[in-house]
């Protein structure tokens, strides 16, 4: 592809919206074309400016109650719940985390444009297809248990490492089981959690070969969040909304010492 064709793809490429073949073609071109690479720098500068300067307005606290009471007048079964308003209090904090994550992501994408980015995309693709396959093949679990003390020992002898296993039933993400997976060419533990009728796959594998990049993205309707704590890489994938998956990731982070 020549520069003109590449330029038309750059926006979609930096938005993470290209298929793998085109993405690779773009990255290959950028590696040897300083002019197009400079255009990408401009796009990154723009993204950084937009993401740091534009506020995401949050609903005034009174609005939630107004909406609830309007819905109740309409006959909707709506709770006068305190738990919801508590969630709303937590949300801005989460936004900060989210912003930090997107900044980290922007930096990551900005500085390691090339091989790592391809690997990141490959990792996301792989995780999503693992997740989809686990649902389709009805092969979500090899060990079905809501007890972390059953799930954790099950991995012993099957993996060369001992993954941290935490139940999050208390915060609405009950652990339902686990199985073995291959992620990024390594053996990984897949822990399965439930949120309503949806499954969350949490892949855990050692970080010693390569730390997982901090990623928050959506692919084919599935949300993916990944991070590392230095010893282990974590990657959560599910069809639940991005906000809820971020909550889940935050709970796991806090529960993992």
């Amino acid at each position: 592809m020549d520069c003109n064709e590449i330029r038309r793809l750059l926006e979609a490429a930096t938005d993470g919206e290209l298929d793998v073949a085109h993405q690779l073609a773009v990255e290959e071109h950028l590696g040897r074309c300083p002019l197009c690479a400079r255009a990408v720098e401009g796009i990154h500068a723009r993204r950084t400016a937009l993401q740091t300067a534009l506020p995401r307005f949050t609903a005034p606290p009174a609005l939630a109650e107004k909406v609830r009471s309007a819905l109740r007048n309409e006959g909707a079964p709506v709770r006068t719940s305190a738990s919801q308003s508590k969630r709303a209090d937590v949300f801005p904090l989460w936004r900060v985390t989210g912003l930090a994550a997107s900044l980290a992501m922007a930096l990551f994408v900005g500085y390691t444009w090339g091989g790592s980015r391809v690997r990141t995309q490959a990792l996301v693709d792989e995780a999503v297809s693992d997740h989809v396959r686990s649902l389709q093949a009805n092969h979500l679990m090899d060990v079905a248990s809501t007890d972390q003390h059953t799930v954790k020992p099950w991995f012993a002898g099957k993996l060369a490492f001992s993954p941290p296993v935490t139940d999050l039933a208390g915060v609405g993400f009950p652990l339902v089981g686990g199985r073995l997976e291959r992620v990024a060419g390594q053996d990984a533990a897949a822990l399965v959690y439930r949120r309503r009728q949806h499954a969350i796959n949490l892949f855990i594998w050692p970080a010693r070969r390569e730390a997982a990049p901090p990623v928050t993205r959506e692919r084919d309707g599935y949300n993916v969040v990944s991070w590392t704590d230095g010893s282990f890489n974590f990657l959560a994938v599910s069809e639940i909304p991005a906000v809820e998956l971020a909550d889940f990731a935050e709970e796991i982070r806090q529960a993992t010492p």
Binding site: R56, F57, L63, R68, R196
Partner: peptide, 18 residues
Amino acid sequence: EPPSFEQAMLPHLDAAYN
């Protein structure tokens, strides 16, 4: 019969307001 309207939609209040 989850999710209820409340469960499905109220989490998006901030997105709606923004």
